[in-house]
């Protein structure tokens, strides 16, 4: 737990970190970024929270087994979407042209449409869920283990 100034600024800045990370995940098929990058940005926000409030206070509301469940569900969604195109080939983009995320943009530079790209937005969300839960779990577990060592000395 750090001083009150750091805690106030962290609770303000975490909003911007979360919104920026979720924006990168959601618009991964239109703008630079994607699942991995957005998940890393959200996990850096979690690292800011752990530094500012202390890992014991974070651990009251963010348990690592919940994070493992999130990570495993992200992996399962990813592999399930990959198996969805198995009628033609593994990792086939089977939603292009259908009614869900099925618009096809015009060729060349255009302004972009969020209702495009078929299965890619779902894969972005799955990989983003997986990366943010995995990196947050690593940071949380390491912080908890090191504080236990500190108390023992």
């Amino acid at each position: 737990m750090m001083s009150k100034i750091v805690r106030t600024m962290a609770s303000l800045l975490i909003l911007f970190a979360l919104i920026y990370g979720l924006y990168i995940i959601m618009h991964g098929h239109l703008t630079p970024g994607g699942g991995f990058q957005g998940g890393a940005v959200v996990a850096s926000g979690v690292a800011l929270l752990i530094v500012a409030f202390g890992s014991d206070n974070i651990h009251k509301s963010l348990k690592e087994h919940h994070l493992s469940i999130l990570e495993s569900s992200g992996a399962l969604i990813f592999i399930g979407l990959a198996f969805g195109g198995l009628a033609i080939v593994f990792f086939y983009n089977f939603l292009v042209g259908s009614s869900i995320f099925g618009h096809i943009p015009p060729s060349g530079p255009n302004t972009g449409d969020i209702w495009t790209a078929g299965v890619i937005p779902f894969m972005n969300i799955a990989v983003g869920l997986k990366v943010l839960a995995g990196l947050s779990a690593i940071l949380l577990v390491m912080a908890l283990a090191t504080t236990v060592m500190e108390v023992e000395e």
Partner: peptide
């Protein structure tokens, strides 16, 4: 660049 700034500089 986003991946490097997110993973390399913070995590």
């Amino acid at each position: 660049a986003i991946a490097e700034a997110g993973v390399g500089a913070t995590i």
